[in-house]
């Protein structure tokens, strides 16, 4: 029975990684749609929300069923606990992708202000963090998440910098207020995605070691 459980656990992890990749791709595509002002791509990101939601329900059910039927302990229990957190974080990341995609139609009527500031650079760093946290979950490698605290600090600094820059443009020209507000919100969504990748990292650390850490 234990063998069946562990085969099942591997399948659960594999499906969870697939879901995390869907969330990550929604974020990636939303940023590309924004930068390129590609409304069609933005619409396709929004359309994926139903799929990620369905995956969330299915995978959570799978976790609850495995707990109810097997009463897992030690690492097995920690893998399922971590998986539930990865599922939640991945849905949130996908939904922030959808929120960014929702800004694309408003931001595609004119060329971007100041070449969209540091948003593409910030997005690259955030997506790298998401990738590394999911990879760490998949491969159980703590090395991938060792520097997350410093990386998260960089993301916070970039969000603050975009906020200040956008305020400057709004003060210069009130006609830019709507668009700059969108940029501020996008930076905020990206920062939240980095926070979710930190949550995944914290849970991967717990999954591997049984010890709790907090990544600020």
């Amino acid at each position: 029975m234990a063998e069946k459980f562990h085969t099942d656990l591997k399948a659960l992890k594999k499906d969870t990684v697939a879901m995390a990749q869907l969330g990550r791709t929604m974020l990636r595509d939303s940023v590309d749609a924004l930068v390129r002002q590609d409304k069609e791509l933005a619409v396709s990101v929004v359309a994926r929300k139903d799929k990620i939601h369905a995956m969330e329900v299915k995978l959570e059910e799978h976790c609850y069923q495995m707990i109810a039927l097997n009463q897992p302990m030690a690492k097995d229990m920690r893998v399922i606990a971590c998986t539930l957190k990865v599922i939640t974080a991945s849905v949130r990341i996908g939904r922030y992708g959808k929120s960014i995609a929702n800004t694309v139609s408003d931001l595609s009527t004119k060329p971007h202000i100041a070449n969209i500031m540091s948003i593409p650079h910030m997005a690259e760093l955030v997506i790298d963090m998401v990738d590394d946290s999911v990879k760490a979950y998949e491969t159980e490698s703590l090395a991938l998440i060792a520097d997350f605290s410093a990386r998260d600090d960089t993301i916070d600094a970039l969000r603050h910098s975009i906020f200040r820059e956008a305020i400057t443009y709004m003060m210069e020209d009130p006609k830019k207020i709507t668009r700059c507000t969108h940029y501020i919100m996008v930076a905020r969504y990206l920062e939240r995605c980095a926070d979710h990748s930190c949550k995944i990292a914290e849970n991967v650390h717990y999954m591997n070691t049984g010890e709790r850490i907090e990544i600020h």
Partner: peptide, 17 residues
């Protein structure tokens, strides 16, 4: 013991390996 055992043997036993 049941959440994070220190020894691999314990881990392997309580996870049914």
């Amino acid at each position: 013991i049941f959440e994070h055992p220190k020894e691999d043997l314990t881990e392997n036993y309580i996870t049914g390996r």
